[in-house]
C-alpha cells in the first residue's frame, strides 16, 4: 500500500487464511443463529411495537444477515492475509495487522517485558502460533497472529534472548 510506512518484510503463514476462515465461519454461525433466534421470537409475538409485515416475514431476517455477511466471511481471511505482515529489524519489531481498519505497531526489543508464544486449538491443528509481545504499556504491545509454528518459536526465542541483552529499565 502507498503511504509513509513501507510493508514489513515477512508475510504470515498461508495457513493463517484457513485459521481466519474458521474463525469467521464461527462468528458467522453465531450471528445467523442469533438472527434466527430473534426472528423466531418476533414471529411468535404479536406486539404492537413490531409491524405486521415484519412479524409475518421474520424468516427474512436471518437470510438477510447471511446474504450480507457471507461475502465478508470470504473476503476477510484473504484481506487479512494481504495486510498481516511482520518484521524484526534493528532490534525493533514492526508488525501490521487488521483488514478494514489497520494497525501498525513498533516495539523496540529493549522495552519488551514478556514474550509469549501461544497456540489455540485450531492453531494447533494448523501448526500455527501467535507471538505476543508485551511492554509496560498496552499501547506498546503487539500480537503477531498466524505465524508458522517453527517461525514463531524462532522469533520468540530470538526476542527473548535479545530482550535479555538489551534490557532497558527507563520505564
Amino acid at each position: 500500500m502507498r503511504g509513509p510506512l513501507r510493508d514489513p518484510a515477512h508475510r504470515v503463514s498461508r495457513r493463517a487464511i484457513a485459521l481466519w476462515l474458521v474463525e469467521a465461519l464461527i462468528g458467522f454461525g453465531f450471528l445467523v443463529g442469533g438472527a434466527a433466534l430473534v426472528a423466531y421470537w418476533i414471529g411468535g409475538s404479536d406486539w404492537a411495537l413490531v409491524p405486521g409485515w415484519l412479524s409475518d416475514h421474520a424468516w427474512l431476517l436471518p437470510v438477510a444477515v447471511a446474504v450480507v455477511m457471507l461475502p465478508f466471511v470470504i473476503v476477510e481471511p484473504l484481506w487479512r492475509y494481504a495486510v498481516h505482515r511482520w518484521e524484526l529489524a534493528g532490534d525493533v519489531v514492526y508488525a501490521r495487522s487488521g483488514w478494514l481498519s489497520r494497525e501498525w505497531v513498533f516495539v523496540p526489543v529493549s522495552r519488551i517485558q514478556t514474550v509469549d508464544k501461544a497456540q489455540g486449538w485450531f492453531e494447533r491443528v494448523l501448526r500455527l502460533a501467535t507471538v505476543r509481545i508485551r511492554t509496560a504499556s498496552h499501547a506498546g504491545s503487539s500480537t503477531i497472529q498466524g505465524l508458522d509454528y517453527e517461525v514463531a518459536a524462532r522469533l520468540a526465542e530470538e526476542l527473548a534472548r535479545r530482550a535479555q541483552e538489551l534490557r532497558d529499565d527507563a520505564t
Binding site: L5, L100, S101, R102, E103, W104, V105, F106, V107, P108, R111, T135, A136, S137, H138, A139, G140, S141, S142, T171
Partner: peptide, 30 residues
C-alpha cells in the same frame, strides 16, 4: 515511551488521516 501504535480505520483512510498512539509505561498507558 515503550512503543508506538499507528491506527487507521476505514474512514480515517478515506480522509487520509491516522491516529498515533505513544505507548508509555505510566499513566493511562497510551
Amino acid at each position: 515511551i515503550v512503543g508506538w501504535t499507528v491506527r487507521q480505520t476505514l474512514f480515517q483512510r478515506s480522509s487520509g488521516v491516522l491516529t498515533v498512539v505513544a505507548g508509555v509505561g505510566a499513566g493511562s498507558g497510551g
